[in-house]
Design a protein around this nucleic acid. Sequence first.
DNA 1: TTGAAAGCGCTAACAG
DNA 2: CTGTTAGCGCTTTCAA
Lengths: 338, 338
Amino acid sequence: MKTTTIYDVAKEAGVSIATVSNAINGKGKVSKKKRDEIFKVMERLQYQPSVIASALMGKKTYTLGLLIPDVSNPFFSEIARTVEDLAHSEGYSVIVCSTDNRNERVEKYLRLLEQKSVDGILIGTGMENGELLTQLAEKSVPIVMIARESADVSAHSVLTDDFKGGTLAAEHLLELGHRRMAIVSENFEVSSSIERVRGFRFALFEKGIGLEDGSIVSSDSSIKAGKKAAETLLQATERPTAIFCVNDILAIGALQAAKEAGIRVPEQLSIIGFDDTILSTVTNPALTTIAQPMDQMVKLAFGLLIKDADGDDAIRQRIVMSPELIVRESTGKPTLEA
Amino acid sequence: MKTTTIYDVAKEAGVSIATVSNAINGKGKVSKKKRDEIFKVMERLQYQPSVIASALMGKKTYTLGLLIPDVSNPFFSEIARTVEDLAHSEGYSVIVCSTDNRNERVEKYLRLLEQKSVDGILIGTGMENGELLTQLAEKSVPIVMIARESADVSAHSVLTDDFKGGTLAAEHLLELGHRRMAIVSENFEVSSSIERVRGFRFALFEKGIGLEDGSIVSSDSSIKAGKKAAETLLQATERPTAIFCVNDILAIGALQAAKEAGIRVPEQLSIIGFDDTILSTVTNPALTTIAQPMDQMVKLAFGLLIKDADGDDAIRQRIVMSPELIVRESTGKPTLEA
DNA sequence: TTGAAAGCGCTAACAG
DNA sequence: CTGTTAGCGCTTTCAA
């Protein structure tokens, strides 16, 4: 069955295609009579206007790109869902792109999105190569960064104050009485992770507390890798009483390492994560973590993206949101020991 | 900066657009010399062919639609990731559509995808309305159903033997010695859930064991709802020694209900889930569950979709995969009691 | 109010 | 080998 086009509708309704187009888009003046007739025919023929064709005429494609490290990571899949709903309510659809934080993938996807003339791109993944992005921006593809930032990219961004998040984590642990702490960070030079670590260390520093050698380890962002990283930390002669993990995935790895080593959480070891994903509510003990106001962030980012797409060439914005400490069960007072 | 078109490249390289097109697509014969020149120019001008324009010529859009109930549900986000990777390796991008199993959303998305002339649609969500799908199929949009099935839809489908999955769960519990069991099922009339329950009951039936009244409860597919459902089950005068949940999300709810009621798992209560999502590895105790060979299923489905898109109008296929029992920590022998 | 016609960027014959 | 030309389905002047 051939797809029905605007021509079919026009012919059937006994008008010109221009009139059909006008009727559909509410442009120009179309007599009520003809319009009704046209809509009736469209209905009968099950006519669906081709987004492709109208996009070719320079109209919008009503398609957005979303770049994130990995959709199957709950933190990002939650973002994806929020973006999708927002987009959907405005008539857009979203192409999801998992980059694994790998630059080649980022570039390939960016190219793909450009070729498909998406109306905008939301970036929630690391970007070493700001150049490509700048090129895109020049071609007037609206871009906004979410929960990530890249110094050399000139695009709106809405992010969490990661430094403060790290500080929050540290203060919580400090307040509980911890003094010997450790950190599991991320391998990739992800700016947010780096800031989280910096914030954490700074808060300790302010209390005159330092981190011992070897008590910061980096790891891939997977449970298994996080577990391994935590294991090395737990094997130290003077085991830390608390571990700060720069995201929930890592924290879960740490939880598992502790369980396997027979170390009770939070009695013998406190663990704190970051992101407040669904995972943190599911573990046992449930994970204390730092929450980013993701829904709001996505909403803001989306707003910027669409506004931009509509031609508003507002000046570059950088919106920073405040993270929040969510205390659950994985942190507690350190037990007194040597 | 205006987007550079094939005309710009042609002019700059001193050839016709046809030659450029041929060079790009490796069609016809283009002398090496010109081709090199053309590629050089493309590079310099940063030319990106417009998928839009070539799609309008009846070529592929290299875009696929993926309909699932909810990307933020780990089971589906894992599917999404697999699909995305496969698609990506073939040059496709995928539009993710979360339907919440709601028919209106399904329809709206399907329309959207049609308008965007996607090359194919993967459906992993419930479908009451087979009609729309049939229409699409007639318009020769390839469709394949994954992990779901709809009787009145004529499309390929690759699914798990859910009945057998239910049986597997029952047999495991039976072997452990359980006799008083209960089920948490899903609200929506999702065919797979229904089959899982049927399989479970059938296995019990074969052993001459029945389910008591009120020991099957339905629930929305959320942790909270699963928890509530499990709570009612656990309040029965003769509490079940094992609960079969038709998916991991529900099982986690059950886990939490047990924890809150002070019932130890698996000592006092066995819980078994379905899907083998990342969640099941994260809980404590880790969840015994039934795994579907999702990677393979997605691979098969994707293959069918693409092959179909390439014009092969193969006869309708229905591939059924075998589920597998994954024993972890949430199931064990029932403790002897009243 | 309506319609004819000119593209949007690209591909596919069909001539040279 | 290479260029010319006619669309793909739609929007948009510009006349009528």
